[in-house]
Amino acid sequence: MPHAVISCLHANLAAVEAVLADIDRLGIDTITCLGDLVGYGPQPNEVVELVRERGIPSCQGCWDEDIIEGLNACECSYPSQLAERRGHLAHHWTAAQLTDENKDFLASLPTSLRRDRSLFVHGSPNSQHEYLLPDMDAFAALERVETAGADTLFCGHTHRPYVRDLSNGSIRVRVRGPQGSSQPQQERQMQLPMRRIINAGSVGEPRHGSTRATYVVHDAESGAVDIRDVPYDVERTCQAILEAGLPPIFAWRLSHGFEYAERADDASHVCER
């Protein structure tokens, strides 16, 4: 039975509505959300309420946590001081807009969801803030999935969808005898089963070079994964960003489909809030 996995909605109502319409058109009843319902976008209450109305099981994303726990909850790194100031502005604006009821909902979200041998998280099993990038060290990636006790790990956070199969993994262990013993050193090799990481990309703020919202459809029986690209009214969201008084660069990068930050102004800057 196929199910849909969505992530990083970022208060973009037009994109969320378009993706949910696509899921409904496919006749899929089971949806899982990987968090970041809010942040950057102009319609935080509307998006949270739509997820609540649809009864979509959701993880807590880093932005969701940040709004509830405060700025010190964030372990992220901004590429520049200007980018960090924009993040602060978006945080305070979102926190002021959200109703107490919707804040309580975000606070109630778990950091992970599990279905059979599949685990659903925002960033990684370790933290909502950790990025599982597609080119990270294969052993480190395998360790994230294996220690979580999962065959398939669903994540978001990067805003870039991908499927990564981790196969032919092995661990070689050398075991020495007790100190002073003449017992020879033994070597053991263990083959690890295939594991998979599926990144759902982003519904509300795609950064993979396309303005289309992304999500994935997964069939647990066949293992098939379909990365869906869904067009939506980008201009509607961009206009709402400007009318809300949020940084205009949020609209610009949404209309181009990738991240933008002034990396050259302070290349060594790391957010330490």
Score class of each variant (00 low, 15 high):
Ala4Trp: 05
Val5Trp: 07
Asn12Leu: 02
Ala14Gly: 07
Glu17Gln: 07
Leu20Pro: 10
Asp22Arg: 11
Asp24Tyr: 01
Arg25Met: 06
Leu26Glu: 14
Ile31Tyr: 09
Gly39Ile: 02
Tyr40Trp: 15
Pro42Tyr: 00
Glu46Ile: 08
Glu49Ala: 09
Leu50Met: 15
Arg52Ala: 12
Arg52Thr: 11
Cys59Leu: 04
Gln60Met: 14
Gly61Met: 12
Cys62Tyr: 02
Cys76Trp: 00
Ala90Phe: 02
Ala95His: 05
Gln97Glu: 06
Leu98Glu: 12
Asn102Cys: 06
Leu106Ser: 00
Leu106Ile: 00
Ala107Lys: 13
Ser108Asp: 08
Pro110His: 09
Thr111Gly: 13
Arg114Asn: 03
Arg114Ile: 00
Arg115Met: 07
Arg117Phe: 05
Leu119His: 08
Leu119Ala: 10
Val121Pro: 01
Asn126Cys: 06
Gln128Trp: 01
Glu130Lys: 02
Pro134Glu: 03
Asp135Glu: 08
Ala138Arg: 04
Arg144Ser: 14
Thr147Gly: 04
Leu153Glu: 06
Cys155Ala: 13
Gly156Pro: 03
Thr158Ile: 06
His159Tyr: 00
Pro161Cys: 04
Pro161Leu: 02
Tyr162Gln: 13
Arg164Cys: 01
Asp165Thr: 00
Asp165Trp: 10
Gly169Tyr: 06
Gly169Gln: 06
Ser170Ile: 02
Val173Cys: 10
Val175Asn: 09
Gly177Trp: 13
Gln179Cys: 11
Gln179Ser: 11
Gln179Asp: 12
Pro184Asp: 12
Arg188Val: 07
Gln189Arg: 12
Met190Arg: 11
Met190His: 10
Met194Ser: 08
Arg196Ala: 00
Ile197Asp: 13
Ala200Pro: 12
Gly204Ser: 15
Gly204Asp: 05
Glu205Thr: 00
Glu205Gln: 09
Arg207Cys: 10
Arg207Thr: 01
Ser210Phe: 07
Arg212Trp: 05
Ala213His: 05
Val217Arg: 03
Gly223Glu: 11
Val230His: 10
Pro231Glu: 08
Pro231Val: 05
Thr237Lys: 04
Ile241His: 03
Ala244Leu: 09
Pro247Phe: 01
Ser255Ala: 15
Ser255Gly: 15
His256Met: 09
Phe258His: 10
Ala261His: 14
Arg263Phe: 05
Val270Phe: 09
Cys271Gln: 07
Arg273Leu: 02
